[in-house]
Simulated scan of single mutants.
Amino acid sequence: MVMGFGGITELTNDQCWALLRSNDLGRIAVSAAGLVDIFPINYAVDEGARTVYFRTAPGTKLLELAINDRIALEIDGHDEHEAWSVVVKGSAERVERQSEMDAAERLGLEPWIPTLKYRWVRIRPLEIAGRRFALGPEPSRV
């Protein structure tokens, strides 16, 4: 860990993965035709492969990922003493093989809202980074 300016600590890859595993809600950013869209998702982590999965229905996310497979996933959290953020950048691909869908199903990911989300998407990370922030009052300006 590297302590930075103002109580900012860079997280190791293992710390980032631990935070990803301990949570299940994040936001993905996808881009197509020069526009960026951000969507909330719930997700699951395949620890062995160090990949992230989410489920979705046909629509904007799948269309944009078909045009441009680059994706970013961001998760964050806080308590009364610190906050943290993890960003995963990588490529997204639809899971098409039945054996891979069956393996993804075993991760236990269920939609949070009562909709049919039977399309699986796998995020293959190319880069992962995280930071932890010590919370406190703003320093005096004088």
Rank of each mutant, 00 (worst) to 15 (best):
I8H: 07
E10Q: 14
L11A: 04
L11K: 01
L11Q: 03
T12G: 07
N13W: 07
C16A: 07
W17K: 06
L20W: 06
L20K: 02
R21A: 15
R21G: 15
S22Y: 04
D24M: 08
L25S: 08
R27S: 10
I28K: 14
A29H: 09
V30P: 00
S31E: 05
A32M: 13
A32H: 09
A33H: 12
G34F: 08
L35P: 01
V36M: 00
I38H: 03
F39P: 00
P40W: 00
I41Y: 02
I41R: 03
I41C: 05
I41E: 00
N42Q: 01
V45C: 10
V45T: 08
D46V: 11
D46K: 09
D46A: 14
A49D: 14
R50P: 05
R50Q: 15
V52Y: 01
F54Q: 01
P58L: 10
T60E: 08
T60F: 06
K61G: 03
L62H: 01
L63V: 13
L65T: 03
A66W: 03
I67V: 15
N68S: 01
D69L: 10
R70N: 09
I71K: 02
A72Q: 04
A72Y: 05
L73H: 03
L73Y: 08
H78R: 12
H78E: 08
E80Q: 11
H81N: 13
A83Y: 10
V86A: 02
V86S: 03
V87M: 14
V87F: 04
V88P: 08
G90W: 10
S91I: 12
A92K: 10
E93R: 15
E93H: 12
R94W: 02
R94D: 03
V95H: 01
V95C: 07
S99V: 14
A103W: 14
A103M: 13
R106N: 07
G108H: 09
L109S: 04
E110R: 15
E110C: 04
E110A: 08
P111V: 06
P111I: 10
W112Y: 10
P114A: 12
P114K: 07
P114W: 10
P114F: 08
T115S: 08
R119G: 00
R119H: 15
W120T: 04
R122S: 03
P125F: 02
E127K: 06
I128F: 07
A129H: 06
A129N: 03
G130A: 02
G130P: 01
R132V: 02
R132C: 02
F133S: 01
F133I: 13
A134H: 13
A134S: 14
P137T: 08
P137G: 09
R141A: 09
V142D: 12
V142R: 04
